[in-house]
């Protein structure tokens, strides 16, 4: 199997991942190699096998509904690239 340059671009866009134009073909080659590896899975008959999402067969634990977090905004926003009036700033969002 191989991945085309345009498929790589589509995935890069979905993942909002900037990739230099000259690197795309190298990603396409690497990913195609990975896909070849993945197709080996087709050798195994998995009909009727339940997909396994977690290694441990457990159910979700539930948290009691109480407020436990006091937010220190200054601390959290000290590491933010751009804030003003307590808000995180981003380039204008157009709806």
């Amino acid at each position: 199997m191989s991945l085309t340059v345009s498929e790589v671009k589509d995935c890069a866009h979905l993942a909002r991942l900037g990739i230099e134009e000259q690197d795309i073909s190298s990603y396409a080659k690497d990913l195609s190699g990975m896909l070849d590896l993945l197709t080996q899975m087709n050798d195994l008959d998995t009909d009727g096998v339940e997909p396994m999402a977690h290694p441990m067969d457990q159910v979700q634990r539930l948290r009691v509904d109480v407020v436990t977090e006091q937010v220190d905004r200054e601390k959290f926003q000290a590491i933010a690239p751009q804030v003003e009036a307590g808000l995180y700033l981003v380039p204008k969002v157009i709806e």
Binding site: D65, V66, V67, T68, E69, V71, R73, Q77, G86, Y88
Partner: peptide, 20 residues
């Protein structure tokens, strides 16, 4: 009272980002 996946308050109208 608290959020679906955290212990922060859900009260409406707080100062921006003080309940995140």
């Amino acid at each position: 009272k608290s959020k679906i996946f955290s212990g922060a308050s859900t009260a409406y109208g707080a100062e921006p980002n003080t309940q995140a």
